[in-house]
Design a binder for these strands. Structure first.
Lengths: 214, 214
DNA sequence: CGATGTGAATCGTTTCACAGCC
DNA sequence: GGCTGTGAAACGATTCACATCG
């Protein structure tokens, strides 16, 4: 825990957490690095090195205590408390995200929904009501919402992101296919479905080519 | 083009492609590595090294020809032809994906939709009709569909993936929060929304902590 | 023993720096 | 001058191998 946790490790922590929570639900109390690694398609040494980034609470001959690890990981990831989230954009994707059980069951709760289309404003979104994009900045600020999910068209994504930052948001999950330009004190994560499909297209093409012959 | 393209490079190619297509639409004919890099928040040397993986068609003093690069990138990524895709799971996310314009406008077309829930079978999904999961294997095989998108609950994801493979699919985009165990000749890409939020949570926590003090 | 924690070796990626070309 | 292509250096991540501990 002395040195900052490497980026590559951070990306794996949620993966470990998910698996550990599954194991805990099944009653597992300790797990070895090898077992955990194999269930995630990784090497045991990597798991040990990763966990060594924050304290040594594995026990030789036994393994790691599942419950302790979960607590520790949640603390590190910041999911030991609820994050309230604003959803910007109530198109197809936005609607799906509001209804998505995965967020509800975890540490994230969508607490406000905005859209620029007057036809969408006022519509019900789960137990929320879609608000006008014009009210976005004051409303996010009033509620003190720290995170936003952008599910808007590419053309308006940068502008929407700027307004989120203006409203005091510190983290943005962006679904629009553009690279956002934001101040360094705001965290951004990017999910581009088309990009994922293109990467998959490459992999599939390569594997097929290899299978077919040189 | 001699050596296989490094994984890290492949992950950036769709990013380049997207930006280049945007530039081409705006009438740009050549672009320098520096300009391209900066618009994507990267270093110029990286762009040059990346492009050097496949032929040298940048011109010193001028830059890279946008149109040629686009053609080349599409060829490498395998998006120079249409990929027909099967969607498995017609829940909230599935519905959003069917309607998603991003796929339609690119090289991906959803051509069959399956769900295990009898209540959903027969419902319209765009210009398609949801089919029973029982028909999945023969139907995917009959149509010769090479790719599948899994938007099913975690509990059934592995089973659904197995059936996709059985049906001859070579690429799977998995939205379920589980690590799939699949044969090596099948490409997998994983999108886990909760995981993305957790990574964001970590980044936001870290940045806030840094802003607050030591 | 079995399993951790960790230096050391390995591997891959990014960045630098500059020769060569337009 | 501006810009590419590329060795070489710097950096980071992964894997190995083994001393060490319960």
């Amino acid at each position: 825990m002395k040195t900052p946790i490497p980026k590559a490790v951070v990306n794996r922590l949620p993966l470990y957490l998910r698996r550990l929570e599954y194991l805990a639900a099944g009653g597992t109390e300790t797990i070895s690095s090898r077992e955990l690694a194999e269930s995630l398609g990784r090497k045991d040494a990597q798991v040990r090195k990763d966990f060594a980034c924050f304290g040594n609470f594995g026990r030789p001959g036994v393994g790691y205590p599942v419950a302790e690890l979960i607590t520790k990981l949640r603390g590190i990831l910041g999911t030991d408390h609820l994050w309230r989230v604003a959803l910007v954009g109530f198109g197809n994707l936005g609607r799906a995200l509001v209804a998505y059980k995965g967020f509800q069951k975890r540490a994230f709760k969508i607490q406000a929904v905005f859209d620029a289309d007057p036809a969408k404003v006022g519509r019900r979104a789960g137990d929320l009501v879609v608000q006008s994009a014009a009210e976005m900045v004051p409303e996010i600020r009033r509620l003190g919402i720290p995170m936003a999910i952008l599910a808007v068209p590419a053309e308006v994504a940068q502008a929407a992101a700027d307004r989120c930052v203006e409203a005091g948001v510190v983290g943005i999950l962006n679904f629009a296919p553009v690279t956002l330009d934001l101040p360094g004190h705001v965290a951004v994560n990017h999910v581009d479905l088309t990009l994922c499909m293109e990467q998959l297209s490459f992999l599939a093409s390569t594997l097929s080519r290899r299978a077919a012959g040189p």
